[in-house]
Amino acid sequence: MSHDTLNPEVMPSEPEKATLEGKNKFLGFWFFLGGETVLFASLFGTYLALRNSNNGGPTSEELFGLELVFVMTMLLLTSSLTSVYAMYHMKNNDFRKMQIWLGITVALGLGFLGFEIYEFYHYIHHYEFTFRSSAFGSAFYTLVGFHGGHVLFGLLWIITIMARNAKRGLNLYNAPKFYIASLYWHFIDVVWVFIFTVVYLMGVI
């Protein structure tokens, strides 16, 4: 009888917190998310303070189109649910289904990122609204671009752990990695909820 602690015969119901390393990752990651909250708050504060300083360039009312933002919001919100499904299957020790749902999450995230790149491209080429146009431009691209950077990082992260563990299957060593990547993905959606409310909706009112 083998005693492989990372590949038990019966997987515990919370494989992400079954090892000390998993517990530490879990706590450390929430600590990081607390810090990220403050970091994004400083960018939101800057944006709110500078959003009317458009230096004669386009204003937020002229720039923002709600249709595109609505589609992007739906994509990111749905991808949050699909990663919940992925973690549901992880806890039921169904590796294949977890990978499928993570794949859907990645596809939705890529869709979001594509729309965001299109949006920035549109602003730059049709409105000549760039990072250097005005204080509003700098604050806008810093805040929304930083979030977009998080989306890109999250996608690369999820794709990497999916590929790295594709042949290994699920065990107590990689379960915390999947769980934490999904927490990161949810946090990206948390930030987006405030971006679509504070930047886009309040920008066109």
């Binding site: 706590l27 929430w30 998310l33 403050v38 708050a41 504060g45």
Partner: peptide, 22 residues
């Protein structure tokens, strides 16, 4: 419990930061 402390800590500082900037 600890994640809650960290998030609420983060949210309080976030609130103060935004208030200060405004």
């Amino acid at each position: 419990e600890l994640p809650a402390i960290m998030m609420y800590g983060g949210i309080s500082v976030a609130f103060l930061t935004i208030l200060t900037f405004l």
